[in-house]
C-alpha cells in the first residue's frame, strides 16, 4: 500500500552512537581529511592550485597591468622580439636553427617568441575556460536536473528528452556550430562548452534528486508551507550535490581538453593571445625540426588535465564511503 505506516519497532533510536559515526562521515571536514590522506589527490590538488595561481597572476597582468610585469621583468608574451631567433630548442640542446640559450629556457616559437612566457600566459585561458564553462554547465545542469527530478511527470519527460537530444549531438560539432552562429571569440567557446556539459550534470543530479525528494525533511518543508523553488534550492540541491562536485572537478579537465582542441582548430582565443591549443597548432609546421615547440604546450595540457582528474578521483573516493576500506 502506498502509505508510510511501516510500524517501526522501538529499537530504532537505540543505535544513536553508530548513527552519529555514519553521519559525520558525510561532513565536509571529514571529506577534506580523507582527501588529505590520499597522496595522489593531494598531488593533483597542488598542481591545480599552482596552475590556478599562475592563471590568476597572468590575468591580473593582462587586465590590470597591461603586461607591465611581463615587459619589465620578463618579456611580452605577444609581441615579436626585436632580435628574432626562430624555433630555438630548449637551453640545454641544439637543432638546425642553433643552440639553445638561457634567455629562452624552453626555446622559441615560429616568430621568435619565448615559449615559456607564452605557456605561462596561456594558463589563463586554459584555467578560466575550464572553470567558467564547467560552472555554466554545472549551474545549468543542476537547475534542469533538480527541477526535472523534483517535479517528475511531464516536466521530467520534457526536460530529460531535451537533455538527451543535446547529448546525442557530437559535442565538437555542437560547439563549432554554436561558435559559427555567434562568433569565434573565446567567450562563445566558454558558453558553448558549458552548454555541452549540461546533460552530464543534469542526468547526474536528477538521479540523486529523485531519491532525495522522497526524504521526510522535504515532506516536512512542504508541510511547513515552504515554496517549491525554495525547497529545490535550499533543501533538495544541497543534499544532492556531492556527486556533482566530484563530476565538476573531472569536467574542468575535460573542458580544458575540449577548448584546447577548439583552439587547435582555430576556434577560441585568437592570435596573438597565447593559448595552449593554438600553440600546438602553430607548431605543426616545425614538428620535425623543433619538436619541443609541440611538446611543451602538450605537456602543459596533459599535466593540468591529469591533475584535475587525480583530484576529482580522490574527492570521489572520499565522498563515497563504499569505496573505503
Amino acid at each position: 500500500m502506498a502509505q508510510r505506516d511501516t510500524e517501526q519497532s522501538f529499537d530504532e533510536s537505540g543505535g544513536g552512537v553508530a548513527e552519529e559515526e555514519i553521519e559525520s562521515r558525510v561532513g565536509l571536514r571529514y571529506t577534506l581529511s580523507q582527501v588529505r590522506r590520499d597522496p595522489t589527490a593531494m598531488f593533483g590538488l597542488y598542481v591545480v592550485g599552482f596552475m590556478t595561481a599562475i592563471a590568476i597572476f597572468a590575468a591580473f597582468d593582462h587586465y590590470v597591468l597591461d603586461y607591465w610585469f611581463a615587459e619589465t621583468f620578463w618579456m611580452h608574451p605577444h609581441r615579436d622580439p626585436s632580435n628574432i631567433q626562430r624555433l630555438l630548442p630548449p637551453a640545454w640542446s641544439e637543432n638546425v636553427f642553433g643552440e639553445g640559450i638561457w634567455k629562452y629556457p624552453l626555446g622559441t616559437d615560429h616568430r621568435g617568441r619565448d615559449v615559456l612566457v607564452r605557456l605561462f600566459y596561456g594558463t589563463r585561458i586554459a584555467i578560466s575556460v575550464g572553470f567558467l564553462s564547467t560552472a555554466i554547465g554545472m549551474v545549468g545542469g543542476t537547475i534542469v536536473g533538480a527541477v526535472s527530478g523534483y517535479y517528475g511527470e511531464w516536466i521530467d519527460d520534457v526536460l530529460m528528452r531535451a537533455v538527451e537530444t543535446l547529448y546525442a549531438i557530437p559535442f565538437l560539432v555542437l560547439v563549432i556550430a554554436f561558435m559559427a552562429a555567434f562568433g569565434r571569440e573565446l567567450v562563445y567557446a566558454m558558453i558553448g562548452v558549458g552548454i555541452v556539459q549540461i546533460p552530464t550534470f543534469a542526468r547526474l543530479i536528477r538521479s540523486r534528486v529523485v531519491s532525495v525528494r522522497e526524504e521526510d525533511y522535504i515532506e516536512a518543508a512542504r508541510a511547513a508551507g515552504v515554496r517549491d523553488s525554495r525547497i529545490i534550492l535550499r533543501h533538495v540541491i544541497p543534499n544532492s550535490f556531492a556527486p556533482v562536485l566530484v563530476q565538476a572537478t573531472l569536467q574542468v579537465g575535460v573542458a580544458i581538453l575540449i577548448v584546447a582542441g577548439l583552439s587547435f582548430l582555430g576556434f577560441g582565443a585568437q592570435p596573438p593571445t597565447a593559448s595552449w591549443g593554438q600553440m600546438i597548432n602553430q607548431s605543426r609546421d616545425s614538428m620535425i625540426v623543433n619538436p619541443w615547440f609541440s611538446i611543451w604546450p602538450g605537456m602543459a595540457i596533459l599535466i593540468t588535465v591529469m591533475a584535475f582528474n587525480m583530484f576529482g578521483d580522490g574527492l570521489r573516493d572520499a565522498l563515497d564511503p563504499r569505496l573505503q576500506n
Binding site: 508510510r4 530504532e12 521526510d216 525533511y217 516536512a220 512542504r222 508541510a223 511547513a224 533543501h235
Partner: peptide, 20 residues
C-alpha cells in the same frame, strides 16, 4: 500549511535536513 496546520512526522531521524 505551517501557519495554521503544522505536521509532526513519524521519524525524527529523517525529518530534519542533515545539511543545515
Amino acid at each position: 500549511r505551517g501557519r495554521e496546520i503544522a505536521i509532526i512526522f513519524q521519524d525524527p531521524m529523517e525529518s530534519l535536513n542533515p545539511v543545515y
